[in-house]
Design a protein around this nucleic acid. Structure first.
Length: 154
DNA sequence: GCCAACGTTGGC
DNA sequence: GCCAACGTTGGC
């Protein structure tokens, strides 16, 4: 099983938004970055777990855990002219962008602020992509070691 | 709002 | 293929 970290802006989709989603599941639409696309399409497996991270907000950090419940399939929003994720460069019969379905497993017992993660940046969380300067990927793979350690922080 | 870092675009 | 310009991300 793989471990991931998914970023989301709470003003767009927060951990609470899952409560209003059928079966607490949502399509992870709108990723328009090739590196992230490749992970969505090729690497995420059913049953994989991911930390759900709030970004670009007053208190960034890890809010919960989600599970990949459907593996990569074409992101239809790229073909929808009314969608904010519409991409005219995506051919109708050849999908350019992909998405997966994620389901909320649970909230963290305690929200884990980015600042708390940083305290271990040169220790147990050394190498965590999220903490690397300049990292902007909305999807990053995580080492099981880092996953386990973060669970001890909650 | 500022700024660093990175990705994408497009001219050549 | 190079590289400057531009756009986006995201913490602060």
């Amino acid at each position: 099983m793989n471990h991931w970290l998914l970023k989301s802006e709470p003003s767009v989709f927060s951990i609470d938004t899952f409560d209003t989603s059928p079966r607490k599941t949502t399509g992870w639409e709108g990723v328009r970055n090739y590196q992230a696309r490749n992970m969505l399409r090729d690497e995420m497996k059913q049953g994989d777990l991911a930390f759900f991270y709030h970004s670009s907000c007053p208190e960034p950090g890890i809010a919960g855990i989600v599970e990949i419940v459907r593996t990569g399939y074409p992101d239809a929003s790229a073909w929808d002219p009314h969608s904010e994720y519409y991409d005219p460069k995506s051919p109708e019969n050849k999908p350019l962008w992909y998405t997966v379905d994620v389901k909320l497993v649970r909230r963290m017992k305690h929200f884990i602020p980015l600042a708390s993660l940083r305290e271990h940046a040169s220790g147990a969380l050394d190498g965590l992509l999220l903490l690397r300067k300049g990292n902007r990927l909305s999807i990053t793979p995580m080492e099981p070691m880092h996953w386990q350690f973060i669970l001890t922080l909650e």
